[in-house]
């Protein structure tokens, strides 16, 4: 299935990239699945704890970042404790520091995400450059969860490196930086970034439980999938003022539902319903 031709931010595009980021969780059989499901020739770039597929066909280049793996594995534990929890707001050193300072001298970014992107940056940029030099095509970037954060940061750096980013789709992605950073991303990538979130998914509200967190802010446009409003969600979580014993299983189900809302399967099924 080729990338559907429709306006930026259309649900059909979001569904296409939801499939791509779902496939980004596969290792050895990933390239075959990219070929079968999306008609893309894909190559996995994996350095340290960061994985990204650079895929393409005759008309497009697609970069899909893998999100955090389940904390039941060593890789997952590394994702959660060394990357996601490492949420001091910083400007990195070196060339990356110059590229991100371009957002303004007051912009600060999530250190764990910066380090995760830095580990894969050189081979990733080389792969995109090779593909783009071979034939100039629209570059699409996508990712789920942690991968969505990396997709946004990668979009910024690719553009700074002189590669035009066509559109970015993130699914249940957390925030990546402070207000100055978000404003700069909005100014430079606004209209090309689509942040797909389920109202029940809590991860896009992260990191809000940390000491530094209220400094974080979301950048560009948000697309909401699934039904419900914040008020209805609050009512699900705490029906009435106190939780009656008979309501407890329902509350627990609502909490589990919020966690499940973050999984890629949820986003895929929401988007496939149109």
């Amino acid at each position: 299935m080729p990338i559907p031709e429709c306006p930026p931010g259309d649900t059909r595009l979001a569904y296409y990239f939801a499939q791509a980021v779902d496939l980004a969780y596969y290792n050895d059989d990933g390239p075959a699945k990219f070929r079968d499901q999306l008609g893309l020739e894909a190559k996995l770039i994996s350095v340290g704890n960061t994985q990204v597929y650079v895929a393409g066909d005759d008309a497009n280049i697609v970069c899909a970042f893998r999100g955090s793996e389940s904390p039941t594995s060593i890789d997952g534990l590394k994702d959660w404790f060394l990357t996601n929890a490492n949420n001091l707001l910083v400007l990195p050193e070196g060339r990356a520091g110059t590229d991100f300072a371009a957002a303004g001298v007051g912009a600060r970014f999530h250190r764990g995400f910066l380090e995760a992107l830095e580990s894969v940056w050189a081979p990733f940029l080389a792969a995109v450059e090779a593909a783009y030099t071979q034939k100039e095509r629209p570059i699409w970037i996508c990712g789920h969860s942690l991968g969505g954060a990396l997709a946004l940061l990668a979009a910024w750096r690719l553009e700074r490196a002189g590669f035009p980013v066509h559109q970015v789709y993130t699914f249940g992605a957390p925030m990546i930086g402070n207000a100055a950073a978000a404003a700069a991303f909005e100014k430079n990538l606004g209209g090309r970034v689509f942040r797909v979130i389920d109202i029940k998914d809590v991860v896009p509200k992260l990191p809000t439980i940390s000491l530094t967190s209220n400094l974080y802010e979301h950048c560009p446009k948000e697309l909401t999938v699934g039904q419900g409003t914040p008020a209805a969600l609050a009512a699900d979580l705490a029906p009435g003022d106190t939780i009656a014993p008979e309501a407890a299983p329902g509350v627990w189900a609502a909490v589990l539902g919020q966690i499940e809302a973050h999984f890629m399967n949820n986003y895929l099924s929401r988007l496939s319903q149109g």
Binding site: N87, G94, G97, T98, V105, G106, A107, A184, T212
Partner: peptide, 30 residues
């Protein structure tokens, strides 16, 4: 570290860094 990070005001002066022996100067948003 996170508490100090939150309390210390961000320096909005020029960002003048030597990167691999080259001067990188950022005044955007100063």
């Amino acid at each position: 570290p996170p508490v100090i990070g939150k309390l210390v005001p961000i320096d909005l002066g020029p960002r003048d860094k030597m990167v691999e022996g080259e001067r990188h100067l950022t005044l955007t948003g100063w």
